[in-house]
Design a protein around this nucleic acid. Structure first.
Length: 800
RNA sequence: GCCGGUGUGUCGGAAUGGCAGACGAGACAGACUCAAAAUCUGUUGUCAGCAAUGGCGUGUGGGUUCAAGUCCCACCACCGGCACCA
């Protein structure tokens, strides 16, 4: 057969489309498989080979499932709201809608050229009105349930993009979109109360099958810690200073307090504070520091003692000074701490610098040198003295502080509420009306979708307001409640909104009455296997689990966790071993590869290049190697004759079926392909194979290289598509050879190999080894001390 | 600092505690060719040797075991996440 991949690939792509081969059906009696890949943002640059790798993993699994008789949902869509389309619109003066449609079309063409078995009847676009209608619907449900709220707070603001960013979008103090430095700004913004779900998000991880590092990152991000809240009285006034600590049992070691520079108590008692000028000056200094200076220059502790306010340790009535210092953050805990310098290194450094007392309450270490953070016997702590176990002493202190009414045990999370808005045009309008009489009023459900109005200028306002604010016809409206004049919210939702529930819409994308029908949700949910990039583990993954859990709580979806299993692919690096980027000129365009080598070669290569979960550099020569393999597959048609089995190859075939089947499940695509390469080498060494065997070979190859496999299948006279033909079965008994080569060792040293019957007993194996003469005279004059025989593997003789 | 992960030929990478380097690439040699490409055949961890063969080899140092890339302890390097998180 001549391997004319251009014609072959076009031919089968057309046929799959015509026959609706990959469309998930409503046959709920069949077992289902829902495979999900992260839908792309349709950028103007088109796809790069990283997308191909990202989708090829579950593409192979989905294709195998179909052959195994599953009803498979393997959908694709476009996460199309976002700044790049809007920036193109600003630059070129084209409506973002037009830009987006153009990009989606380009992406779709590329995806189809790669031969992916997506269900194109269920494609979704987060920017279409019948999609974002439901994004808005979910937002209103959250608003109704008190999970969407407005608050004036210190927010992360990107001066370059002119938008407020969530914590997740400003990791490391850099804007996630343009990488410029984030500044802190006080602003009235929308939040989603994700912290209410912190515990559920953490607990839910116990019930899902995510890769360990994915779970770890989520746990880390949620950042649960257990401890206690304790209220310290302030001497002379009726005020409590509430602190959070993970070691309430060190309360007797408290020698001072520290509050964040922004702590409200300073403003409240300005008049009582003798050195308010010094505090104000310090506060100003802190504001000037960049995030980096404040968090990275850990060495040098700074702060100012508050003159005029003094706290009282509720455990022993001792008066302790209060400092302001920027090593305490307003955003975590209560913005105030009790300092125990003997057992906390930061407090220790601060105490040393400011000459505060250090009282040891846990035995151990040398506190003249550094804080002791290990375990030990409690001392100087009245009722806690003698406790040696931190768990017990904390529990006892918990009881005591509750008895005294000065606090309680509690938990804290690092995760913060989700700043949920962008002051930009190309996003879902937030369906809220501000009425001077009624306050914030939800747009009635029947008025959804609240559509984006046409605007002429997409530039955001200088004061950080959305371009929508300039459209009077949009802004001015009637209050749904009192019918009086009111104004619409002009912020739009952040980019993560649409992707927080898209997996639900794939199930029933054209439903006008609900997110999806109950019956279909019951059948298809949860997603059986979700694969994507590690970069989405703490943003999209957390957000979408949160939305899903909320929808579950209001009875809109039938399962608590959206994704039963989550894996991640590694990046495709440039040929020079660094991340592909336009500026470095090392980006590989999948179209170029398909033009020269074909889609099948590209698909095989991205999976063969290395461990699926690890990053690996692109290598043009290795791509050629995969093409060579497929050329040899085409050659098989020339040496296939007759039916039945070839005795010499039978076991090799059964072994390969077994290996490819299990390797696909373990995402070990590289070794699955290597097994097929090994088999083809064996076939050519033998010189021929039967038509039945060729059919098995192309069935195993089909998920990886479907076009050439279909073509050969047709040549073999099959009328049915290979894509829905049965997956080959193997016979375990036939995966073992009748004779095996075992290694001979003398005292653990390799001395050669010998052929023995499979599973033969020790005496037979020993006799075969002696008769083989492989040990020569090496046993002469020695006594055999021990014989270790591992069936079908090794015979180790220990002799002296 | 804390939490994960990874260290194997020239390169990408294989190895349920049991023959290290599968498979692919590259390189070298040969065949075909006027020639090149493509294709096919062979060699390819390293050191010594004409050879048979032997020594050494999975980041470093120890340990367990008949047997360690794999298990245990200590360390080094790199990658990723979190980070004055109380």
């Amino acid at each position: 057969m001549k391997y004319d991949f251009h014609n072959i690939e076009k031919k089968w792509q057309d046929r799959w489309e015509a026959e609706k081969t990959f469309i998930a059906t409503d046959d709920f009696s069949k077992p289902k498989f829902y495979g999900l890949v992260e839908f792309p943002y349709p950028s103007g640059h088109g796809m790069h080979v990283g997308h191909i790798k990202a989708y090829s993993g579950l593409e192979v699994v989905s294709r195998k499932r179909r052959m195994q008789g599953y009803n498979v949902l393997f959908p694709i869509g476009f996460d199309a709201f976002g700044l790049p389309a809007e920036n193109t619109a600003i630059k070129e003066g084209i409506h973002p809608r037009v830009v987006t449609d153009r990009n989606i079309e380009h992406f779709s063409e590329q995806l189809k050229r790669a031969g992916f078995s997506f269900d194109w009847s269920k494609v979704i676009d987060t920017t279409s009105e019948d999609y974002y209608k439901w994004t808005q619907w979910i937002f209103l449900k959250m608003f109704e349930n008190g999970l969407a709220f407005r608050d004036t707070a210190l927010v992360n603001y990107c001066p370059s993009c002119k938008v407020v960013l969530s914590n997740e979008d400003s990791q490391g103090g850099k804007c996630d979109i343009c990488h410029s430095d984030i500044i802190q700004k006080t602003k009235d913004v929308w939040y989603l109360r994700i912290t209410k779900y912190a515990d559920k998000l953490l607990e839910g991880l116990k019930d899902v099958d995510y890769l360990p590092n994915i779970k770890m990152q989520q746990e880390n991000w949620i950042g649960k810690s257990t401890g206690a809240f304790i209220n310290f009285s302030i001497d002379g006034i009726d005020e409590k200073l509430r602190i959070y600590t993970t070691r309430p049992d060190t309360l007797f070691g408290v020698t001072f307090m520290v509050i964040a520079p922004e702590h409200p108590i300073i403003e409240k008692y300005r008049d009582r504070i003798a050195n308010i000028d010094a505090l104000d000056e310090y506060k100003l200094e802190c504001q000037k520091k960049t995030e980096f200076e404040r968090t990275q220059l850990v060495k040098d502790k700074t702060g100012v003692k508050i003159e005029g306010l003094c706290a009282i340790n509720p455990a022993n009535g001792k008066r302790v000074p209060i400092f302001i210092a920027d090593y305490v953050m307003m955003g975590y805990g209560t913005g105030a701490i009790m300092a125990v310098p003997a057992h906390d290194q930061r407090d220790y450094e601060f105490a040393k610098k400011f000459g505060v007392d250090i009282i040891q309450v846990i035995e151990g270490g040398d506190i003249s040198v550094e804080a002791y953070t290990g375990d030990g016997k409690m001392i100087n702590s009245e009722f806690l003295n003698g406790y040696t176990n931190k768990k017990d002493s904390i529990a006892r202190m918990g009881e005591e502080i509750e008895k005294m009414g000065i606090g309680e045990l509690g938990v804290q999370f690092k995760m913060k509420d989700w700043a949920f808005n962008r002051q930009r045009y190309w996003g879902e309008p937030i369906p809220i009306v501000h009425c001077p009489k009624c306050g914030m009023v939800a747009v009635p459900y029947e008025e959804l979708p609240l559509k984006l109005p046409a605007v002429e200028n997409y530039e955001p306002g200088q004061g950080g307001e959305s371009p929508l604010a300039k459209i009077d016809s949009f802004v001015n409206c009637e209050c749904p409640k009192c019918k009086g004049p009111a104004k619409r919210e002009t912020d739009t939702m952040p980019q993560w909104a649409g992707s927080s529930w898209y997996f639900l819409r794939y199930i029933d994308p054209h439903n006008d009455d609900a997110i999806a029908s109950e019956e279909k949700l019951k059948y298809w949910m949860p997603v059986d296997w979700y694969n994507g990039g590690m970069e989405h583990v703490t943003r999209h993954m957390i957000y979408s689990r949160f939305w899903h859990k909320f929808l579950y709580d209001i009875g809109a979806v039938p399962v608590a966790e959206p994704y039963a299993k989550r894996t991640a692919q590694g990046m495709v690096l440039g040929a020079n071993g660094v991340k592909m980027s336009k500026s470095l000129g090392n980006v590989v365009d999948p179209n170029d590869v398909i033009d020269v080598f074909g889609a099948d070669t590209l698909r095989v290569y991205v999976l063969f290049m290395g461990d699926y979960g690890s990053a690996a550099p692109w290598n043009d020569s290795s791509v050629k190697g995969c093409k060579r393999f497929l050329d040899r597959v085409a050659e098989l048609t020339n040496i296939a004759k007759g039916n039945g089995v070839t005795p010499e190859l039978e076991s090799a075939f059964h072994k390969t079926i077994k290996k490819v089947s299990s390797d696909i499940e373990d995402m070990k695509f590289n070794t699955a392909i290597a097994a097929l390469m090994t088999l083809i080498n064996q076939i050519f060494d033998h010189g021929s194979l039967t038509v039945d065997e060729l059919k098995i070979f192309i069935s195993l190859l089909c998920p990886f290289a479907p076009h050439i496999s279909e073509e050969i299948n047709e040549m073999l006279g099959s009328k049915e598509l290979l894509a829905i033909s049965p997956w080959p079965e193997y016979d375990e008994a036939k995966t073992v050879d009748s004779t095996v080569e075992i290694a001979i060792q003398l005292c653990g040293k390799m001395k050669g190999t010998v052929l023995v019957p499979a599973d033969c007993d020790e005496d037979t194996a020993f006799k075969t080894i002696i008769d083989s003469g492989k040990l020569g005279d090496q046993l002469d004059g020695k006594t055999i001390v021990k014989k270790i025989y591992v069936k079908n593997r090794i015979f180790n003789i220990v002799a002296k």
